[in-house]
């Protein structure tokens, strides 16, 4: 299925959950300092394994960078 991650279209297998997506993207879900929103709703870390993604889900994955 097609989803959008950080503004880019990606083809992933159907019924992927958020946790699996992070692994698929090469991120370590245990790594502190990242947060995820799906369709503009923040998904708490505790719900990553149960949060299923759907066709056209919009995922934002963010972290802290240097800023003023």
């Amino acid at each position: 299925m097609k989803i959008r991650v950080n503004g880019e279209d990606r083809e992933v297998r159907p019924n992927l959950n958020l946790y699996e997506l992070l692994i698929h993207l090469g991120l370590n879900p245990a790594h502190p300092g990242i947060a995820v929103a799906v369709d503009r709703e923040v998904v708490p870390k505790t719900e990553w394994q149960t949060k299923g993604l759907r066709e056209n889900s919009e995922v934002e994955i963010i972290r802290a960078v240097q800023g003023g």
């Binding site: 950080n6 503004g7 993207l25 090469g26 991120l27 990242i34 947060a35 934002e60 994955i61 963010i62 972290r63 802290a64 960078v65 240097q66 800023g67 003023g68």
Partner: peptide, 9 residues
């Protein structure tokens, strides 16, 4: 202060 930005894969 820090900013929040998209992770780059």
């Amino acid at each position: 202060t820090v900013s929040m930005r998209r992770v780059k894969f």
